[in-house]
Simulated scan of single mutants.
Amino acid sequence: MITIMIIDDNEQLQNEIGNLLTINGYSVLKPKDFDKIPKMVKDDSPDLVLLDINLASDDGFKLCTEIRSFSKVPIIFITSRNTNIDELMAITLGGDDYITKPYNTQILLARINALIKRAYPNDSNLDIIEYNGLKLNILSSTIEYKGNSKELTKNEMKILYYLLINKEKIVSRVEIMEYLWDSSMFVNDNTLTVNITRIRNKIEEIGLKDFIKTKRGQGYII
């Protein structure tokens, strides 16, 4: 699964971008301690970095230089600074792309997707989430466990994906439905129940029991 780190000290914007990326199938890291960014990039190994230039505690250009001293991770600058000099500096210091605010979300997603394909042309594992032996392949919408596999519907895949990216946390039914609505999928309470039951059955059919647990009055947890 593709993990993207968003380095922006505007918390609202960081959350907005994070929600957009999550809805579109990415795992997201949103650091708050900007004095330790290089260490966090080393420790967390994101597949791509979105980097602002103007940071309260540091400078995006300096951070880019520090990251480039040990990593070739793709870096996209996202900034309100729109001069040719700034863009030239960003690319010269090792940035792979440069997008100015305000940006079109579809263009941002397209740029991210294009850069990831260039950077990881042969890495199919970026589209797979694995937990406790279960593999969810996002591209093929299938689950696999010990060599056994099952196909999922689009809704089933989205629901299981959301539970997996929130693994070891209780996820409420309302959260799941809101996530699906944000993905342009409309489900009511009864439809969600049916989908959860089908997902459980398919997971059991490939040999894994009690993968999705119900927390009465709270929601579900993996």
Score class of each variant (00 low, 15 high):
84 N>L: 08
147 G>Q: 05
100 T>K: 04
77 F>E: 12
190 N>Y: 15
153 T>E: 09
156 E>S: 06
151 E>R: 05
134 L>K: 02
189 D>H: 13
134 L>R: 03
102 P>H: 08
102 P>Y: 04
84 N>Y: 14
98 Y>E: 02
153 T>F: 05
175 E>A: 05
121 P>V: 03
116 I>D: 03
74 P>Q: 03
108 L>Q: 11
95 G>F: 05
144 E>S: 15
120 Y>Q: 04
104 N>Y: 15
148 N>I: 12
166 N>R: 01
111 R>W: 02
84 N>M: 11
72 K>Q: 13
145 Y>M: 02
156 E>G: 01
153 T>A: 00
173 R>Q: 03
140 S>A: 09
164 L>F: 15
73 V>H: 03
142 T>G: 03
168 E>P: 08
98 Y>I: 14
130 E>I: 13
139 L>I: 08
113 N>Y: 15
74 P>S: 14
72 K>G: 10
139 L>Q: 15
121 P>G: 14
95 G>M: 06
133 G>F: 02
140 S>M: 03
132 N>F: 15
152 L>H: 11
137 N>W: 00
82 N>Q: 06
82 N>D: 12
73 V>E: 04
136 L>E: 07
75 I>K: 08
177 M>G: 02
167 K>Q: 07
113 N>P: 13
167 K>T: 04
105 T>C: 09
89 M>C: 14
73 V>W: 09
182 D>H: 10
130 E>V: 04
99 I>V: 04
159 I>D: 00
148 N>G: 05
149 S>C: 06
74 P>I: 03
72 K>W: 08
140 S>D: 09
96 D>L: 01
117 K>A: 12
107 I>N: 04
155 N>G: 04
111 R>C: 02
133 G>H: 06
92 T>N: 14
138 I>C: 12
148 N>R: 12
184 S>Q: 01
111 R>E: 13
71 S>A: 07
139 L>T: 14
134 L>C: 07
121 P>W: 05
105 T>P: 08
164 L>I: 09
142 T>C: 05
124 S>A: 12
160 L>V: 05
140 S>R: 08
169 K>C: 03
120 Y>V: 03
111 R>N: 09
158 K>V: 15
183 S>E: 10
154 K>P: 14
129 I>W: 00
164 L>W: 12
92 T>F: 06
167 K>G: 03
138 I>E: 10
153 T>V: 06
104 N>R: 05
85 I>D: 07
160 L>Q: 04
88 L>A: 13
164 L>G: 03
137 N>E: 09
139 L>Y: 13
92 T>P: 06
107 I>D: 01
174 V>C: 04
92 T>S: 13
181 W>A: 15
